[in-house]
Amino acid sequence: MIRVVTVVVWGMSVTIQAQTLPPFESEIRAFEATDKTTPPPRQPILFTGSSSIRLWDSLQGYFPDKVVLNRGFGGSELSDVIRYADRVIVRYQPKQVVLYAGENDIATGKQTGQQTYERFVTLFRYVRKKLPNVPFTFISIKPSPSRRAYFSEVKEANRLISQFLANQRNTSFVDIQPVMLQANGQPVGELFKPDSLHMKPEGYRRWAKVLRPYLK
């Protein structure tokens, strides 16, 4: 991506072209650099998606009997995972793909539940074409307290994605919402950090308990 920049040199304006990186490119390059110094495991269960995956510290400790690899990045949207699918998913030739994404798409206020679902289908079909026999698992979009305004769109995205995956082979939709909600349907606030968006360890413990039976 080229960006035109005007700078002043000795009192004269000079226009130059500056290279700018696509969103999250630096994080993807960091993964690639890490892979060179510390080769990733062969055929891991590959976790990817947004910061709820990236911030899942000690992922291996939650699934000690599995070979897992965390490749979550930034505040990524499904469109970003599509852009980097070859570099964060396909290149690892994973045993299974576990995805958490879509929450940030909706939270921009520019993507409906339907549009988020459509992005998911685009990603799924691409990965399935590249890795036709690899199980694909989607973790449902969580009920973050700071994003209550988008709960209806989150519900719609989850519904559509669940229905879609139910008609695909070798897939699973893991609904983590029930373990994150109170009896009145409101999020369990204690599971979240002060930003009411990212989770504390207890949130991840609940995720792991629900997710574990789906891992290959």
Score class of each variant (00 low, 15 high):
2 I>C: 03
4 V>K: 12
4 V>R: 10
6 T>L: 08
8 V>H: 09
9 V>E: 15
12 M>S: 13
13 S>N: 12
16 I>D: 03
17 Q>V: 11
19 Q>G: 09
21 L>P: 05
22 P>Q: 09
23 P>G: 07
25 E>M: 04
27 E>L: 13
28 I>D: 01
29 R>V: 06
29 R>T: 03
31 F>S: 04
32 E>D: 12
33 A>N: 14
34 T>M: 13
34 T>L: 13
34 T>R: 15
36 K>T: 11
44 P>N: 03
47 F>N: 00
47 F>L: 02
48 T>Y: 07
54 R>E: 08
55 L>T: 04
57 D>T: 12
59 L>P: 07
59 L>I: 10
62 Y>Q: 06
62 Y>R: 07
67 V>F: 10
70 N>S: 11
76 S>V: 00
77 E>V: 00
77 E>W: 00
80 D>I: 01
81 V>G: 00
86 D>R: 00
88 V>S: 01
89 I>V: 15
93 Q>A: 14
93 Q>E: 13
94 P>C: 06
95 K>R: 15
97 V>Q: 02
97 V>P: 04
99 L>A: 02
99 L>Q: 00
103 E>S: 09
109 G>Q: 04
109 G>P: 04
110 K>N: 14
111 Q>A: 11
119 R>L: 07
119 R>D: 01
120 F>W: 06
122 T>M: 01
128 R>T: 00
130 K>V: 10
132 P>H: 11
133 N>W: 12
134 V>W: 05
134 V>K: 02
135 P>A: 14
141 I>L: 15
141 I>G: 04
144 S>Y: 05
145 P>C: 12
148 R>I: 13
150 Y>M: 10
152 S>H: 14
153 E>N: 08
154 V>S: 08
155 K>Y: 12
155 K>M: 13
156 E>C: 08
159 R>L: 14
159 R>E: 14
161 I>E: 00
162 S>P: 06
164 F>N: 06
174 V>C: 06
174 V>F: 08
176 I>H: 01
182 Q>V: 09
182 Q>D: 11
184 N>V: 10
188 V>W: 01
188 V>Q: 13
190 E>K: 14
192 F>D: 05
194 P>W: 11
195 D>Q: 07
197 L>I: 11
197 L>N: 04
199 M>Q: 10
201 P>G: 09
203 G>D: 06
205 R>A: 12
205 R>P: 08
205 R>I: 09
210 V>A: 04
210 V>C: 06
212 R>H: 10
213 P>E: 09
215 L>D: 10
215 L>F: 10
